[in-house]
Amino acid sequence: MFGPQSSLVMYDEELKRINATIEKLLREANAKVIFLVDKNGQLITAVGETEHLDTTSLASLTAGNIAATGGLAKLIGEKEFSILFHEGEKDNLHISIVAGRVILVVIFDQRSSLGLVRLRVKKASDELGDIFQDLAKKAEDMEAGGEFQSPFAEITDDDIDNLFS
């Protein structure tokens, strides 16, 4: 599932578990916003004060940021930098990689601290890692059992044309 050619697939059940985990993290870390992004820049989910945030743009730039620092890491012989921290005047960004392919972003202000965020992220990362493993397994099982049915299997040329009308 995690090969270059396969889709990331998300199901209700796992999304609920993911959201429960990051909502808990949001509370325990006193954070403002938390979101999860696929390494390719696609937003998986966001919790907290997201109303005034352009989460799509944030997701794309976060992935670009991780990709660029990952490139830097390789150049100096590191595998990757698993944690990035950006400090602002009011808000700070804590970015980490979960399960090798998902990016966890925590936005927090002076109501929290880097130490607290780091501690709580560590715990939540393990839980998230388990969930993504389940997700990968589910996709594998479905594929092996021939159960994976693309939701697009039945689309027609007209459906596609209508998108652009």
């Binding site: 990331l8 998300m10 939701p151 697009f152």
Partner: peptide, 15 residues
């Protein structure tokens, strides 16, 4: 690598 989200019924593709 597209992202098929059954939970939010969305599909994302990268061009």
């Amino acid at each position: 690598m597209s992202f098929i989200n059954y939970a939010s019924r969305e599909i994302n593709c990268k061009i």
